[in-house]
């Protein structure tokens, strides 16, 4: 064997191709003449470029990723955020609240972010041993009254779907507000039973991301009538028949939903009034 077949499932250490004609791309490495897979995933051959689309694995942050995080600790300086990575980035209070407001007598850090709060935030630095979070753009803010579901970050494109088809399906049929973090943390807010339904749908996507017929399974789970499922399937067929999971994952790379967030600047509101908000 000289060459792996496109879309074949490969394991770490597996030789994908021999010879200097090929170029190793993501989740692969070169060892002498060989191009070798470094993670379990689907092999992808595009001309001379060989890469592996991982099927699971730890979240590797990249600059620009919009992620969902959770406040896990705080001190007088700021907050420690869990984003599903072994580094828990620190958000300093100075980045979030202007100095003069901090001096106010009724200033209380826990009113801005308390332990257990869920936030949405963008990664602005992703070095191997240092991750920094941005506080200046519109994605930044606390997410109230929802639930958090965690899946491997590599499955995020499947939750979004082709051109955002899956995520709009989930939103439209549940009426829930959903934010999908690049880190695989998903925040869902709506009626409790709808939240539960979306949680189940997301877990099903995680379990069966590599299998065919996923959209129909999700439609059934959401309680969409069979005739409508059929109709939707037919209308979709013309658009994109028989595309592989790998192609799909490529296409939706960074198609995260752009939406208004609930509280853009919690600091402004929170510090000015003697809030009785929790």
């Amino acid at each position: 064997m000289d060459m792996i077949k496109d879309k074949e499932i490969v394991v770490p250490g597996q030789v994908l191709a021999k010879g200097m004609d090929f170029i190793p791309s993501s989740a692969t490495f070169r060892d002498g003449e060989d191009i070798v897979a470094s993670r379990i995933g689907l092999a992808q051959v595009k001309g001379r470029v060989i890469q592996v689309i991982p099927l699971t694995g730890p979240y590797m942050p990249e600059v620009g990723d919009v992620v969902i995080g959770r406040i896990v600790d705080m001190n007088y300086n700021g907050w420690e955020i869990d984003i599903g990575h072994h580094i828990k980035p620190f958000l300093t209070v100075n980045d979030v609240v202007p100095k003069f407001k901090q001096r106010s007598s009724n200033f209380d850090m826990a009113r801005i972010f308390n332990i257990g709060d869920i936030i949405r935030v963008t990664i602005i630095k992703a070095a191997k041993n240092d991750i920094k979070l941005g506080t200046r753009d519109r994605t930044f803010g606390r997410l109230n009254n929802g639930i958090l579901v965690k899946i491997p970050s590599v499955k995020v494109p499947r939750v979004i779907g082709k051109k955002g088809s899956m995520i709009s399906l989930l939103k439209d049929f549940s009426g829930c507000r959903i934010f999908v973090g690049k880190n695989g943390w998903i925040w869902i807010s709506g009626d409790s039973d709808k939240e539960l339904m979306i949680e189940k749908a997301v877990k099903l996507i995680d379990k069966e991301a590599h299998k065919s017929g996923l959209t129909e399974k999700i439609q059934r789970l959401l309680g969409i009538p069979e005739e409508d499922i059929k109709r939707m399937k037919e209308s979709l067929l013309e658009e994109n028949s028989e595309e592989s999971v790998a192609d799909e994952i490529q296409k939706v790379e960074s198609a995260l939903p752009e939406e208004e967030i609930q509280e853009k600047k919690p600091k402004a509101k929170k510090t000015t009034k003697k809030g009785d908000k929790k």
Binding site: V11, P12, A27, T56, G57, P58
Partner: peptide
């Protein structure tokens, strides 16, 4: 490998 860890070999 099942955890998706980057590895040189099994």
């Amino acid at each position: 490998a099942d955890a998706g860890m980057p590895m040189k070999d099994i």
